[in-house]
Amino acid sequence: MHAQSPTTTPAAAASRPVIVRCLRLEKRYGTGESATYALRGVDSTIFRGEFMAILGPSGSGKSTYFNMIGALDSPTAGRVLIDEVDVAQLSASELAFLRCRKIGYIFQSYNLIRYMTALENVMVPMTFAGVSPETARRRGMELLELVGIGHRWQHRPIEMSGGQQQRVAIARSLSNKPMILLCDEPTANLDFKTGAEILEILRQINRERGVTVICATHDHRLLDICDRMMWVRDGRIDRVDERKDVKITVGRMGGQE
């Protein structure tokens, strides 16, 4: 279980608790001729409380990886361990518990429930967790205020712009105070200023509450906030960098923009 993954230095592995670990993770979509390998043997380690950025070109397998470590899809081969427990060993009820309270998800395509208002969408995970409607409503409003669309609480997804929907999705992901926050391109549809605000929220959550944030992105501002960055290419992890080591790299990439 503690097999050395190539992306972890022995010193780091020994010193810090691991929260998500992947072992030889593979994911194939389809079968036979049309089979596509989205992940081809990924070993990764994410430490408790860190801010991990996942970077890579489109189609490299970021969303697939995200679904695997979020226990939302079953891998073709390999294992996912959350807090050193193999996700495949969990019962349906335990999985639901995990998804409901311990992990917050911000999906690339938001996945809001169409017929619910912004507030109701935010309240869904709290309802599943058995939180009383009054508390859920109050907390939901607070979270909507936090992401800056408190005044829009009565609107349905179709009545909102992409960016507004994304902010509802962010508020929803925080509703049960998760230990892990999984974000798939949380700033993709936001203007520069709002994007910065959202990144600031993510940073705060990470620094102040100690929530582990795993964030797939193309937004290079994130590189300033994150602790480490994982480069994904063709379903494999290219390399993992500590941010302090790549200060220069960021500058160079920023120059390219």
Binding site: P17, I19, I82, D83, E84, V85, L90, S91, S93, E94, A96, F97, L98, C100, K102, T127, F128, A129, G130, M179, I180
Partner: peptide, 20 residues
């Protein structure tokens, strides 16, 4: 310190399901 996994999710009452 394991504080993430291994608890059962709450079951919502039928009445709540009906209302939803």
């Amino acid at each position: 310190m394991k504080d993430i996994v291994a608890r059962e999710q709450v079951r919502l009452s039928a009445w709540k399901c009906l209302r939803l």
